[in-house]
């Protein structure tokens, strides 16, 4: 077992090592070793359940970013072995931080698009750690439009720390690329299923995630800002990320509670099938309604009732001549 493990996974790792060792010894000739093996396996199961049920939000952040977690292409390999990747935004370039292409899953044609992280340093440099440039988002939009042209449902897999904050990204209109995707996704007349498979980092995640259905893996996160970024701004200390992660409420169960995601499961195909027959306008109306309902605010009878001066407040900046 090589690769990186998180601190709270250590007890599980220890037992798994013991199990590995025992496997060689446990033969029908040594019933004691067999018994011990069964006992250890049960214990490992129990421990796994216990540990993962009690994780803090910060530990879930670490799990969501786990270097051994399946990434977009790993899911694609399993659910769509025939996946054919498409490249380029037809404007500037091709961005390996987002993969997009065609697939047939259970006889259903699908367009699958997702952020792609790298497994090692070299791959991460190539994939830019899953942080896309504008050309990545524009490629995604181009291929989503192709999907809509042919009535093909879209599945998006979300896994990014955020859209890339760099010189070239700004020069080529990172904000416009994100904004355009968010707007156009509300427009696309085909079912869109979005799944947060790891890290749902802010606008860079949302720009692929305006779906009819938004699913989230159990130990994934979805947040307006990284806990580190939030900590740096509010606590003036990036090491306070653990506190920020708690305050931001960014885990799957938090989001379910806040009515942002739909349910905790990965049955994408069930949703695709249930949506594929929906009349197009109905599909768009329901998608719009879903997002219109998001947000928690008060409606005051009169603004003044809450002690807020509203009618003619003093102007904070001196008025112009």
């Amino acid at each position: 077992m090589n690769g990186t493990w998180l601190d709270f996974e250590k007890p599980i790792l220890d037992i798994e090592r013991k199990i590995e060792d025992l496997r060689g010894l446990a033969t029908p000739e040594s019933p004691e070793a067999m018994e011990e093996l069964v006992r250890l396996e049960r214990k490992a199961d129990r421990l796994r359940k216990e540990i993962y049920a009690k994780l803090t939000r910060w530990q879930r952040v670490k799990l969501a970013r786990h270097p051994r977690r399946p990434y977009t292409l790993d899911y694609i390999k399993v659910i769509a072995p025939e996946f054919v990747e498409m490249h380029g935004d037809r404007k500037f370039g091709d961005d390996p931080a987002i993969v997009a292409g065609f697939a047939v899953v259970e006889d259903m044609p699908l367009v699958i698009i997702g952020h792609q992280k790298g497994r090692d340093t070299k791959e991460n440099i190539y994939r830019n750690f899953g942080m896309a440039h504008p050309e990545g988002y524009r490629k995604a939009l181009r291929i989503m439009r192709t999907a809509a042209t042919f009535g093909v449902p879209i599945v998006t897999l979300i896994d990014t720390p955020g859209a890339y904050p760099g010189l070239g990204a700004e020069e080529r209109g990172q904000s416009e690329a994100l904004a355009r995707n968010i707007l156009e996704m509300a427009h696309l007349k085909v079912p869109i299923i979005s799944v947060v498979i790891g890290e749902g980092g802010s606008g860079g995640a949302l720009a692929l995630a305006v779906g009819d259905v938004v699913l989230m893996m159990e130990n994934a996160i979805y947040s307006v800002i990284t806990p580190e970024g939030c900590a740096a701004i509010l606590w003036k200390d990036a090491t306070k990320a653990e506190q920020a992660a708690e305050a931001l409420r960014l885990t799957a169960s938090d989001l379910l509670e806040l009515h942002v995601i739909d349910e905790l499961q990965d049955a994408v195909m069930r949703h695709v099938r249930s949506l594929i027959g929906t009349p197009k306008q109905e599909l768009l109306d329901r998608r719009l309604e879903k997002y219109l309902k998001m947000g928690v605010y008060l409606e005051e009878a009169t603004a003044a009732a809450n002690g807020a001066p509203d009618a003619s407040p003093p102007d904070p900046a001196p008025p112009p001549a």
């Binding site: 904004a179 968010i182 707007l183 509300a186 802010s202 606008g203 949302l206 305006v210 979805y222 947040s223 307006v224 800002i225 939030c230 701004i233 509010l234 305050a247 931001l248 409420r249 960014l250 938090d254 989001l255 806040l258 942002v260 998608r287 719009l288 997002y291 219109l292 998001m294 947000g295 928690v296």
Partner: peptide, 20 residues
Amino acid sequence: ARMFEGILSLMQMAKTNALL
């Protein structure tokens, strides 16, 4: 987006652009 409302703030981007 305002950090203090977490993901709900992010969702306002989808709400406004879907209506636009």
